[in-house]
Design a binder for these strands. Structure first.
Lengths: 344, 344
DNA sequence: GTTAGCACTCGTTGCTTAAGAGTGCTAACT
DNA sequence: AGTTAGCACTCTTAAGCAACGAGTGCTAAC
């Protein structure tokens, strides 16, 4: 059943009011504050209909109405209009983000901090996933008598290197041969493929010394690949939730914070989300039914994809926050456009 | 004024009871539960004296007594006896810690998790400080046409390497010369010294190409040194505090969790603490008056020093927890005794 | 020095009452 | 048919109050 124009307006007014005041909104206050030219009784009837359709709920008989997840979904999809940031707001964000551009992890973490500061919610950032990155070349470099450096360079420009100690030293030639061997084998494959496949365990050679070297390098090679695949998750502004009425009971606060104790699970969920700005509301998040999540993707070098987002109660300013996050990703994309290849 | 034997016993009983039940303890219950052979009235008199001496406080007139920070301090210093863990407990810890010895950060993080699980408090670990580590040698390695790897090896065996891209390629010879230059300059100095001193900015040469190279390497060199000095802090079991009566009010919980939002500050405070098992109670921790902290140091390769600890309300089982933490450090020392030099 | 006895304090619990916000229904109005 | 006024009803919240209980502090006797 379609909603009438007036019902949409009333619903929007209720959402607006509830988001603002965090309290069930009654027919009288709607009629008073928003000029619909009708009496509270009429509003009441409409509200009753909206409730029947599942857009509103009742905490108890004699309380005002509260928007349901379905209402927020409707609002996000159809009703809300993206609020473009004012020049002043943009300038503020730009300045604050520009102040800290030293190191990659530092930079995005700083962005998360700023995001939580602006939204007054809990925010998080994730370093880019590199499982779609392909191997450009692999090189073993002699460092000193007992140390060899393993370097893996991805086509994205990312470089990882790990030092490994091996007891008897190998000649540069042997290292070069193995380097080329590995490179030939894996060039163009994604890190994921290389790790998933069994090839990494099969590689062998006819030459004795080479074989012994392979045995020593393999674990480090695998480990370095795994390290390259790891994403880091940073959370900021966790204590902000204490100022939100929704989490003013200990139980609620605890449930909320426990989400972040299960880091791996949370990380996985965020990784699964689609590109661009994604909003999930209440029920739509399994195991976080009382929260809404807004995430967005940013790009490094136009390729690797990281995530940034906020998490808060379903009652949040979706219009404002999506706009802000969108602007953040624009800024980050710009910042990481011409990034040089230094690792992490 | 010295406490009488009986006063000490009563104080100990009060501490024991309060730690157990988290409720002000009255004279009657002490007289009943612990057999002092005197009446509640006598206990009451002693309690009154203990209060005058600052060992007990009164929430309000008609409530029982609560141990003060001073009482806990006395308890920790003189009264408590270290509880050595049972073979079963030791075995449990050993098994759980052995299960995860892959990577350094992973291992200590796992230890923190276990520690918070056992103590039901919030725990943390810190990776070792390396500012007393001295430089063994520095080496620049050519990787490909546009990439050079900078490797810094510490006397502790720790190796850090960073790749840097430089536009025009330098010959292996030039890199070698610079490597030797740097090594000669900084060998034997601590990372801290090198960073603190101005030397790092002064280094220059007569040869033109070398100078241009130095200019390009310097920022990376400094940055890598800084990276080596960085300690990582991991916290586990934050949500445990919600089950502790002391933090059952939102305000208290918030105050507690805000400690961890100020990561840098917290890290600094932990770093300042002495070696071995250190207990600080309430007031003794500035800006965390309502908490007690127990930390201990663990060693890597018998040299580098990291920290592990718990934080909770002043009302905690000092005897048990110090023993557990001590055992943890023993285990960690053992684990990291023969560690190989792989970075981090 | 120890103890019993007792008045007193203070927080907690449970109960009642009143106020207030809001609904839902009905009957009247346009 | 849609809108509205009126009103009974529901439910939450706050305030007030009495009863209870745990515990102290003091005094006088042992």
């Amino acid at each position: 059943m379609k909603l009438s124009e007036r019902q949409l307006q009333i619903l929007q007014a209720i959402i607006y009011d509830y988001v603002e005041n965090a309290e069930p909104v009654g027919s009288r206050s709607i009629a008073k504050k928003y000029d619909f030219g009708v009496s509270p009784a009429t509003i009441r009837n409409e509200m009753s209909d909206l409730e029947d359709m599942g857009y509103l709920t009742h905490p108890h008989t004699s309380a005002g109405r509260v928007p349901s997840d379905k209402a927020y979904r409707l609002y996000v999809d159809d009703l809300m209009q993206k609020r473009s940031l004012s020049a002043k707001e943009k300038r503020f964000i730009n300045e604050r983000l520009a102040a800290n551009r030293d190191e990659f992890d530092q930079t995005i973490r700083h962005a998360a901090k700023l995001l939580s500061e602006i939204t007054q919610l809990t925010s998080f950032v994730m370093t880019p996933t590199t499982n779609q990155d392909t191997i450009s070349f692999v090189k073993l470099l002699p460092a000193d008598e007992e140390t060899v450096i393993l370097m893996i360079v991805g086509d994205s420009g990312r470089i990882m290197n790990t030092s490994l100690r091996i007891d008897n030293s190998y000649s540069k030639d042997v290292l070069d041969i193995l380097s080329k061997n590995i490179t030939v084998n894996y060039k163009g494959r994604t890190l994921d493929e290389v790790l998933q496949s069994e090839i990494v365990k099969e590689a062998s050679s006819d030459i004795e010394t080479l074989n012994s070297l392979i045995g020593k390098v393999r674990p480090t090679f695998i480990k370095t690949l795994e390290d390259m695949l790891d994403v880091n998750l940073y959370m900021e502004g966790m204590t902000n939730i204490f100022d939100i009425p929704e989490y003013s009971s200990i139980d609620k606060a605890k449930a909320f914070l426990e989400i972040f104790s299960k880091r791996e699970e949370f990380t996985r969920k965020i990784l699964e989300r689609g590109d661009g700005v994604v909003v999930t509301i209440g029920d739509e998040n399994d195991s976080m039914e009382d929260c809404s999540l807004i995430t967005a993707t940013y790009h490094v070098d136009g390729k690797l994809v990281g995530k940034i987002g906020v998490i808060g109660p379903t009652r949040m300013k979706y219009d404002e926050i999506t706009s802000i996050i969108e602007y953040f990703t624009k800024n980050l994309n710009e910042t990481f456009k011409l990034t040089d290849g230094k690792d992490k």
